[in-house]
C-alpha cells in the first residue's frame, strides 16, 4: 500500500509526514516524528496514556488514524511547556509529587489542560470524572487531584 501524505499542525508548527493508512496517530507521533512523550499503555483507548488534544478536544492518539490528522491542530505533551518555563500544570504536578513512575503523567497533563480550558474551577468530583479516562496505577490519584486543584487555582490567579 502506498504511503499517504499528511499535512498537519503539531504544537503550532506545520508538519508533514508520510504514513501507511493503517498507522495510528500515536504511531506517527512516536515513530515518525520522534515525539515519544505521548505514551502507549493499551492501544484500545482504555488508559489515556496517549492523550493528545486534537482541534481542542482531548483524544486518545491510539484511536485516531495518522491520515485523519491531515489539516488538524494537534497538541502533545512536548508543546505544553514554554521554552524557559514549565506550564503551571506541570509545575504543580511536580510540587505535589503527583507522579511516581511517570508513564501516565504526559496523558494526565494533557487531560488536565483540556479540563482547565473548559472548566477553570473544577470541583474534586469534576476532576475525578474528567480524569477517569487516565489510569494511574502508582498514586491512588490523591496527589494528582490535589495538583489539578492547585494548578486550576494558579491559572485562575494568573488570569485575574
Amino acid at each position: 500500500m502506498t504511503k499517504q501524505h499528511v499535512l498537519t499542525t503539531i504544537n503550532g508548527e506545520q508538519t508533514e509526514f508520510l504514513c501507511e493508512p493503517q498507522q495510528s496517530l500515536l504511531g506517527a507521533l512516536r515513530e515518525d516524528l520522534g515525539l515519544t512523550g505521548t505514551k502507549e499503555g493499551c492501544g484500545t483507548g482504555d488508559c489515556g496514556a496517549c492523550s493528545v488534544i486534537v482541534n481542542g478536544r482531548l483524544t486518545c492518539a491510539c484511536l485516531v488514524l495518522a491520515v485523519e490528522a491531515d489539516g488538524q491542530q494537534i497538541e502533545t505533551i512536548e508543546g505544553v511547556a514554554e521554552p524557559q518555563a514549565l506550564h503551571p500544570i506541570q509545575q504543580q504536578f511536580l510540587e505535589h509529587a503527583a507522579l511516581q513512575c511517570g508513564i501516565c503523567t504526559p496523558g494526565l497533563i494533557m487531560a488536565t489542560k483540556a479540563l482547565l480550558e473548559k472548566n477553570p474551577d473544577p470541583s474534586e468530583h469534576e476532576i475525578r470524572y474528567w480524569l477517569s479516562g487516565n489510569l494511574c496505577r502508582c498514586t491512588g490519584y490523591d496527589k494528582i487531584v490535589r495538583a489539578v486543584l492547585a494548578a486550576a487555582a494558579q491559572l485562575r490567579g494568573a488570569e485575574a
Binding site: 512516536r30 520522534g34 515519544t36 505533551i77 512536548e78 514549565l86 511536580l94 507522579l99 504526559p106
Partner: peptide, 23 residues
C-alpha cells in the same frame, strides 16, 4: 522534606525515555 525530584522536569515534559521510547 518533599522537594521536586531530580528527574521531574523530564517526566512532566515528555522527555523521559521509557522502555518503548528507544528508536
Amino acid at each position: 522534606s518533599s522537594p521536586v525530584r531530580p528527574d521531574g522536569i523530564d517526566k512532566v515534559t515528555g522527555h523521559a525515555a521509557f522502555g518503548a521510547d528507544r528508536l
